[in-house]
Amino acid sequence: MLICAHHLAFNYGDSRILENVNIDVEKGDYLVIAGANGAGKSTLIKGLVGLKKPQEGVIHYSFEHKSNGLGYMPQQHVFQKDFPASVEEIARTGLPRDKGFSPFFSKAEKREVLRILNLLGIGDLARKSFSTLSGGQQQRVLLARALLASRELLILDEPTAGLDPLVTAEFYQILGTLNAKGTALVMVSHDLKLALKDANKVLYLQEGIAQLYSKNDFLQSEIGKKVVQK
């Protein structure tokens, strides 16, 4: 068990938006968090990565959270799109920095960064300027950064927002491959059809209630049929 959380409740401002949320993420899981806009998906993700304290309930992690047991891919800020930095430099910020302060990275660290970039098919862009990349390439760089932080568990908040359908499909393919190699994924997604190809669990948020389904149960449920048909 990587994450084990029971009876979580979250407020947004003063109003309770989520209640009695139960989440179990096991090794190799691929959990999709879905629901309408404003259902509390992003709030829940922020809770899971420790950016927002739940009003009730506790989240247990099987790893030391603060030493990079989890790779997080937040939604991209507008200003990051033209940030003056190379692909390599940005990916490196995912590396654990627990070896004290040094302005330099070791050879092994640089090799690891390049290995992950190659894994995601962007090794040849390592020295390119981040701002010159396409939206899909930028998202891969941020995915690489998250992977450098953790190979065990990635938490992604709408990673394909704003990408065109073709690039989105490619991105989900990469996620599927990573998951098949053993990386657990927890992801907020609007592209349920694509996500459900490889996912094994769905957490559906609706009117403050979070219902956890296995993929097949979800596909056969009322809401599942409705959502996937769209």
């Binding site: 950016l51 030493s67 990079n68 989890l70 997080y72 937040p74 910020t93 995912g94």
Partner: peptide, 13 residues
């Protein structure tokens, strides 16, 4: 790291 992405920096400790 903090300039590029404070949210990420916060999560990675």
């Amino acid at each position: 790291a903090v300039t590029f992405d404070e949210t990420f920096a916060r999560v990675s400790g």
